Amino acid sequence: MAAPGSKSVLFVCLGNICRSPIAEAVFRKMAADSGVVDQWRIDSAATSTYEIGNPPDHRGQACMKRHNVPMRHVARQVTKDDFMSFSHILCMDDSNLSDLNRKAKQVKNSTAKIELLGSYDPEKELIIKDPYYGGDEDFEKVYEQCLRCCKAFLEANP
Rank of each mutant, 00 (worst) to 15 (best):
N54G: 00
L10S: 05
E51I: 09
A46Y: 10
D99T: 13
E125T: 13
F139V: 11
M84D: 08
V69N: 03
I128A: 09
E155D: 13
D33C: 07
P131C: 08
N54C: 09
Y50D: 13
P21Y: 01
C91F: 00
A75K: 07
N101G: 10
G53P: 06
R72P: 00
K7Y: 02
K108M: 08
F27Q: 03
G134T: 12
W40S: 11
D94L: 12
R59P: 05
V142T: 13
G15E: 06
R59A: 03
R76Y: 05
R148N: 04
Y132P: 02
K80D: 15
E155W: 00
R76C: 11
L10P: 07
S95H: 05
S34M: 07
S119I: 02
S44T: 06
G134D: 13
L90A: 02
S8Q: 10
H88E: 06
K108L: 11
K7N: 05
D99H: 15
L10F: 04
H73D: 00
C63S: 11
Y143P: 12
Q39F: 07
C149T: 03
L14M: 15
N96H: 09
E144V: 12
Y120W: 11
I89N: 05
T49W: 10
V37D: 15
Y143M: 13
G118H: 08
P131M: 07
I42M: 04
T49V: 14
F83D: 12
A75D: 04
C63D: 05
F11S: 01
D82K: 03
I89K: 03
K113P: 00
A46L: 12
V26T: 08
M84H: 07
P56T: 05
L97D: 06
T79C: 07
